[in-house]
Design a protein around this nucleic acid. Structure first.
Lengths: 346, 346
DNA sequence: TTGTAGGCGTTATCAT
DNA sequence: ATGATAACGCCTACAA
């Protein structure tokens, strides 16, 4: 006997209940649920109304077991200080997942980290993730990618260095934006512009440096490598780099920090050394994080459309999981300059 | 035939493979996996080694289908600007989930929002969440709680106004911390202390106001309601409130903002009006967000152990899901004062 | 202490 | 176009 579903149980509604109510077989209900072809419109309507009347929701576990598909997208990210980046990533990935009927599972990573590979594999099985999104810099961690490959889980990356993700990736025009903002400073009369590099693990870091150099070249301003210092995207490294720059024999009149957090550090350090901003020193950042607009003076910076980028790769991933052709392996996005008051004519 | 699992498929390892390898029945393997009693140590070892040798990971869908349990905890949160709060919540909830073999599913909410109830119900079925964590202010949204109750999904809350969550809740000593920090300002000689209230939807807002008033009372400083203005936890509301305070006939010498973001707004506005901080005006915030230490001067504020609070309620929830007695329905946490340079003796 | 049989609620296969 | 029936991999009875 199939489970006659007598009217005695106010329990979970199953596909059988719907089938009975619509006077069809469960397979037909299944067809309707999964938008399969070969269902007469009239039948479909009957099923559809039974579904709404009964408020039927398919059991995801059963569906997963039977179909061997999982409808969950994993998001593995570095659990760093700069979290506003992740907020945008999360929103972008989430909304795409939602509209596609997928579910988003998180896996923060505290780096550096031994036996990362094992952790990832455990996550993958515990989450039963069908695919994974990897925002920078996670998309360039070998152990993570190995684990993914061994588990045979496809992934898409955001702003990676290695652009070999099987599904696709998104990046933004770091080079161009940095070029433009450097040019903006040059046009304000700055000839000596300090540059604080980003974390070497990020692809964006070298792209931004190149953009800076290209702008100098275009404007025939000599490149002085004493003006270029190493940072790691965080506040403290921005401070240290700035200290170094301001102690130069011939200090810069402007500083281009590769992140807002470093720009905040630069501002902090400059203040400690009694520089007024922007009169004595112009400072610009990158990312347009909340901090940028809360500093005094508000920071001139670059906004990247992170949410859109995250949404785009998530969509790529889901299309791939569905077996559809991913039309664009690579997606490029433009950045916007956000001119505020931390910069001025010289 | 049970599925003899011939050596021909390099496919997914199932419980049958392990059973065969260990020369036991699948039930015994199941017992070992689920730490059930009544397995001879020797047998257990045999099974355990088979599991590791085969790198067996149970299929979560099958497990969920069969046991009707789900091992996923949902986290429904307001998708606001102040995200560093969520970062801590996320980390606390995640790590507890991980150590307990649970998985964490997110559901950001963009408020205000019509048909919230439907969205929550869809999330619950799509996620198949066994229980849910509700950080403030979501734990006080009627539609959310209705949806949860109708779906029969238990939840625990962080800093709620209504403390009727069936599982439990955590809160911190907002009153005491505000009292202490207000007292700190009083001892520095401030007699007129402006107060910017937090968002009325948050329980913390009224607790903080009460702490402020209690400190005034204890120090016999008259309460002037002109010094108390309404804010909503965000930067702009902090600015506006401060504008109002500074235009007072007899303006305050210090401002207590109920959040760092509002304190940042206060600082911004004060700067625009050419106040020096802290000489002309002391400012304090609440939360110790990243912004607090990046402002100039760095902000005196209060740190609440959000990560721990989130961990605590998540643990409560999981204990509840396991059918264990939740020992403490309510968990209280202390805050720390973080004294920096945005305040000074008068 | 260990094993056997029977679901759990879907999707997949193959008829009709 | 629709339906009967067998998986899917595990857990919960209940036996032995």
């Amino acid at each position: 006997m199939k489970k006659t579903s007598d009217t005695d149980s106010p329990d979970k509604i199953t596909i059988f209940d719907v089938a009975e109510r619509a006077s069809v077989s469960i397979k037909t209900v299944s067809r309707v649920m999964n938008r399969e072809p070969n269902v007469r419109p009239k039948t479909r309507d009957k099923v559809l109304s039974a579904i709404t009347e009964l408020d039927y929701h398919p059991n995801v576990a059963a569906r997963g077991l039977s179909s061997k598909r999982s409808y969950v997208v994993g998001l593995i990210y570095e659990n760093g200080d700069e979290f506003s980046y992740m907020k945008d990533v999360l929103n972008g990935a989430f909304s795409v997942c939602e509209t596609n009927g997928y579910t988003l599972l998180l896996r923060p990573l505290n780096l550096p980290n031994t036996n990362l590979k094992l952790q990832i594999k455990q996550f993958l099985t515990a989450a039963n993730a069908a695919g994974v999104v990897l925002p920078a810099p996670v998309g360039d961690i070998a152990e993570v990618k190995d684990a993914l490959q061994e588990a045979n889980v496809p992934y898409a990356t955001i702003s990676p260095k290695n652009t070999d993700a099987e599904v696709g990736y998104a990046h933004c025009n770091d080079h161009g934006a940095t070029y433009d903002l450097t040019e903006f400073l040059l046009r304000q009369g700055h000839q000596r512009i300090g540059f604080i590099k980003g974390h070497p693990d990020h692809a964006a870091s070298s792209a931004r440096l190149k953009g800076y150099r290209a702008a100098l070249r275009a404007h025939k301003v000599p490149y002085d490598k004493a003006l270029v210092t190493q940072g790691y995207f965080d506040f403290d490294s921005g401070r240290k780099a700035t200290e170094q720059l301001l102690h130069l024999h011939n200090p810069p009149t402007a500083i281009f920090a590769s992140s807002d957090d470093m720009a905040a550090g630069a501002m902090f350090e400059a203040r400690e050394q009694n520089f007024s901003i922007p009169e004595d020193l112009s400072i610009v950042g990158f990312d347009d994080t909340p901090v940028a607009s809360r500093l005094w003076p508000p920071l001139t910076t670059v906004r990247q459309p992170i949410e859109e980028m995250a949404g785009a790769v998530t969509q790529q991933l889901i299309d791939h999981l569905r077996g559809e052709k991913v039309t664009q392996f690579q997606r490029s996005f433009d950045c916007d300059l956000v001119i505020r008051s931390s910069t001025c004519q010289i």
